[in-house]
Amino acid sequence: MTAITAARRNARLYLRFLGAGFRSQTIYGFDSALLLFAVVFLNVVDLSLLAVMLTRFEALGGWTMWEVVLLYCMFLAVLGLQYLFTLHLNRIDEFIQDGTLDQMLVRPVSPLLQLVAREFHLRNLFHHFGTGIVGVLIAMAGLGLAWTPERVAILAASLVGGTLLLTGMVLALASLAFWTVRSQVFLFGTAEIQEAVQHYPATVFGQWFVRAMTFLLPLAFVNYYPVMALTGRADEAMHPLLPYASPLVGSAVLAVGVVVWRAGLRRYESTGN
């Protein structure tokens, strides 16, 4: 009972924070226009270079060009969703250093809730997510895939699952700052791998890479497996259920992130930073 009231209170508070976040956003004006242009430009550049290569090297690891575009844009859309809610998680190290975390600790609300609710990055709705979704739609059309209810459900579930997954990963990696003071570099490190997963079907690098991205750093569940599910290639996967597992894996990774954050916080409380 108390757990339920606490959860309800937390949800109410989060909505309030979001409301406040909304009001402090400036999504119009030159700055935002420039950034929107920049993000779209960057991704168009990226995709067209990829397309240059794909048209020369048809059937890259058995994937057609539109499939790779779908792969790329799926990742982009998930990234946009993660940025929308939790872009600022990668600044946990700053928050520890500049005393923001201390401020959170003297308030009667879970620090994790305060951390997540602290900022809200509305513009990513238009930037990464918008670009990604448009790309997904185009790629689906290019592949001639109809929007069956089943596909819509797979897409939605995979977007949610992927978002949870990326959030959990960022939370876990950024929380390493409790031990190492700086943590952004860990995020850059996985960014490199993320780029590879975003651009190329994991099989290009060999089966070992597919396994690593499935069991070790399960980024394959952000785009590789969902695209398999969407294009009806589920039976090519190691196990035919893997392409549908994004929500499950995402929740598990998020749980890991929360555990690391909690451990870090305990350490912070006992040692200072």
Binding site: D102, L105, V106, Y268, E269, S270, T271, G272
Partner: peptide
């Protein structure tokens, strides 16, 4: 400041 942090519960 260290004392104050202990008193607010920020550090054990």
């Amino acid at each position: 400041s260290t004392t104050i942090k202990c008193l607010c519960g920020i550090m054990a």
